[in-house]
Amino acid sequence: MRIGLDMMGGDYAPLEAVKGVKLFLDTVADVHLVLIGDEQALAPLLADARLDQSKYSVVHSSQIIGMNEHPTKALKEKPESSISIGFHLLKNGKIDAFISAGNTGAMMVGTFYSIKAIDGVQRPTISTPVPRENGTFGVLLDVGINADCKPENLVQFAILGSLYSQYILKIDNPKVGLLNIGEEEGKGNLLAQATYPLLKETKQINFVGNIEGRDIFTDKADVIVCEGFTGNVVLKMAESFHEVAVRRNIKDDYMDKFNFESYGGTPVLGVSHPVIIGHGISQATAFKNMIVLAQQMIQSKLLEKVKESFVAKEA
């Protein structure tokens, strides 16, 4: 198993990326990491970390895509950037997964134009883990890349989220809920009203009906489906819970779970290879957890399950 990591992406790279690599390699033996970045910048940091050199290799990149650069333009004009090289390696089978906390737009453009969506998937999606009061996690999707959706898109998000919940979060027969402004069928805007009957008819999921905002952090649904505009608002609000707790010096185990570092990054679901996008302010723990997630996606054969599911749906 070979996992590629953009060492130059993120506000605290490459130092925090190297620290995350060390945290991971200190506990895992059967994964080879391909570290993509400026060799001159990485060399002293890797030497200080005293890593087992048999567990990683470095692929040099001479360019960096900045956080504020135009994604498409940057990928075209910077073929030697760490993100461009990462997608080239992934597309050509040199790595099994690619991770970056760099320019999110460039990661999305690279994903869509390098490795493509799985046959049958209309729109790939991104999700976020949802900490629940009982100590488990649910999953919310879409959380930002599909601000406007059609009902059929939300049905596919439900299928993708169910598979992720089953094979990564280890939830049997995950319950799917449609995020809405009321529990009753027929509630909501035109999108929600049109989506409900489609979800109800979809045999590949365990649809439990509408759920409201107050249900998000309970176990009423394991997979919560919405369009990316609403999902991103919920995500950013949830992240603020941890920030408020830190500012007010509130020590609470549950609030700690809203720290994005605890889960690292979000996978792009519905594409043919594992791609994980990290927060721009990712530090060591986040980088380590993104690598762990990539490992879980590969070991669980999640993408093979997605392909099988959409072949069955098309049939």
Rank of each mutant, 00 (worst) to 15 (best):
G4R: 11
L5S: 09
D6F: 08
D6C: 08
G10Y: 07
P14F: 03
L23P: 03
F24V: 01
L25K: 13
D26N: 12
V34N: 09
V34H: 06
I36C: 00
D38Y: 14
E39H: 03
E39M: 03
L42A: 15
A43W: 08
A43M: 14
L45W: 05
L46N: 00
A47T: 14
A49S: 11
R50M: 12
L51M: 12
S54G: 09
S57Y: 03
G66N: 15
M67S: 11
E69K: 03
H70N: 12
H70G: 04
P71I: 04
P71F: 02
T72R: 04
A74V: 02
G86W: 12
H88W: 08
L90N: 07
L90K: 05
G93D: 13
D96I: 02
A97V: 07
A97E: 13
A101S: 10
N103I: 04
M108I: 09
F112Y: 13
S114I: 06
K116T: 14
D119W: 08
Q122D: 12
Q122L: 06
R123K: 14
T125D: 05
P131Y: 01
R132V: 06
F137V: 04
V143E: 00
D148N: 11
C149F: 02
K150C: 04
K150N: 09
N153H: 13
V155W: 01
A158P: 00
K170D: 15
K175G: 03
E185M: 13
K187Q: 12
K187S: 14
L190R: 11
L191C: 04
T195E: 00
K200T: 15
K203T: 11
F207T: 04
G209C: 13
G209K: 10
E212V: 03
G213V: 02
R214E: 13
R214A: 11
I216L: 14
F217L: 15
T218G: 00
T218I: 00
A221L: 01
V225N: 00
C226S: 09
E227G: 04
V234A: 09
V234G: 03
A238C: 12
A238H: 06
S240H: 08
E243Q: 13
E243V: 13
A245T: 13
A245P: 14
R247V: 03
R248H: 12
I250E: 10
I250G: 09
K251E: 15
D252K: 01
K257L: 13
S262I: 08
S262T: 11
H273G: 09
P274C: 05
I277S: 01
H279A: 05
S282A: 12
F287N: 10
K288M: 14
M290I: 11
I291Y: 11
Q296K: 14
K301V: 01
